[in-house]
Design a protein around this nucleic acid. Structure first.
Lengths: 245, 245
DNA sequence: AGCAGCCTTTGATTTTGATCAAGTCGCCGA
DNA sequence: TCGGCGACTTGATCAAAATCAAAGGCTGCT
């Protein structure tokens, strides 16, 4: 994991930054961005990296935890289930998102890795202390919450008012624009979700998802290989099919 | 509007509090709760009360504003529309909610009064200054955002995975538990939304909403008069039909 | 009172997506 | 290399909700 970064880093004063953090892909985007080297050191001393394999739960609906985490790489599904087992994925989180809400006293949702995922966990107590000490930190967390709220509301429009075709296209668009934390959008990518997951995200069945993907393929909106790898000739076209503008 | 409050107020130190605020129904629940009398005076000097009749837009999708508001009484619909006119209500706000997100530089959604509604508006600049000055204020706004996020995610489960019957029951349950800012739940209430609004909130058509309401009535889950007034003999029963545990 | 207009309900029919049921494909282990 | 298994696709049928269409019923106005 000791990758030497060939590009010049965005910040000059790398000197005092903890080693774990200076190599961290999520440092600038996550909560850590607002922290001084001292504070970063403080936090890093209490934080642990974890690798999570696909399907592994980070936290279950109704459980309690006392930690927060940053996603370093990978994709995490946030989902809710009804008593009878019907499931809905209510959010996807990508690097370098902060996972803050799953860890409230009692979690209202399940967080589960969709693919191999690395996260950086730190205890609630430490972050809470830092929030009290560092002026801009709560603001950062607030911004993250507002971003998630906007995304949730966008998705509500998708769930409530779009057709199956538009839903699937909307999903592919989300992935294309989020899968690569570096550059904005990708024309080609591996789907981080199985058909069953996609169905749970879109409020559809796997059969319908499969049929709609086939339809999009036949209409040349996307190309598929291996059923997991997708390429998108024209993002504009995909957006249009997704009913976005 | 000069109503004399017969009940003893929860706080003792009423002395320095601006008159407009001391009579305000939203003061304890809204953002104002964290402010000192001085700060409240500061804010109140720049704030204006507005009465909004049903159907009147407070802010439209894509517009810009420079104010926030507290809901004093009434109900506000937050909605999004697709290019072709399909609409989805993505949230309802009740007194004493803070309306913060609608007013970001460019609003991602439309806020519109569902019934006669009173709000207390204040300029972005003043609140932003107070946020910088008052330690707990951003936290309060953060909490509000997290509350809305939780509600949005709950609703996503409803939109994606519940049947029409469950959706309508879920809606009625939301209203029963939110319409009265004072006590928790009401067994009897006027619906703040028309059938068309309910349909837009549930991702259904008005015909389906109407049929499901009729069905709930015939099954004695609810009683209806005037098509707007609803009474609920058993909240537990309603919850159960709504698929809530 | 009588009428116009809107909101709501109800009915008949159609459509979309769900359900049921086989396959097919790719991958892993024997 | 061959099964076998899980994930995905495809097909046939069914059902829930949408759509199309026509009343009711309430409100406000003349």
């Amino acid at each position: 994991m000791q990758i030497v970064n060939e590009h010049r880093r965005k910040d000059i004063h790398n000197s005092d930054i903890p080693t774990v953090c200076s190599a961290c892909e999520a440092r600038h985007g996550g909560v850590c961005g607002t922290l001084s080297p001292d504070q970063l050191l403080d936090l890093s001393r209490h934080s642990t990296r974890r690798s999570i394999e696909p399907g592994r739960e980070v936290i279950g609906q109704g459980e309690t935890t006392d930690s927060y985490a940053n996603i370093i790489s990978g994709v995490v599904k946030l989902s809710k289930v009804l008593a009878d087992g019907r499931q809905q994925i209510v959010g996807l989180q990508f690097a370098p998102d902060f996972m803050g809400r799953p860890f409230t006293r009692e979690s209202a949702l399940t967080a589960e890795a969709a693919v191999d995922t690395d996260i950086c966990c730190f205890p609630r107590t430490v972050l809470d202390r830092l929030v009290a000490e560092v002026p801009g930190l709560e603001h950062r967390l607030h911004e993250q919450a507002l971003k998630e709220l906007d995304e949730a509301r966008d998705w509500m429009l998708t769930l409530g008012r779009k057709t199956a075709q538009e839903k699937v296209a909307s999903f592919l668009y989300i992935i294309a624009t989020h899968i690569d934390p570096e550059k904005g959008t990708a024309n080609e990518f591996d789907l981080p979700l199985s058909r069953a997951d996609i169905a749970d995200y879109l409020g559809l069945t796997i059969e319908t998802v499969s049929r709609q993907i086939t339809k999009l393929r036949k209409e040349n909106v996307i190309r598929i290989e291996n059923s997991r790898h997708v390429s998108v000739p024209s993002l504009d076209r995909l957006m249009h099919v997704a009913g976005i503008d």
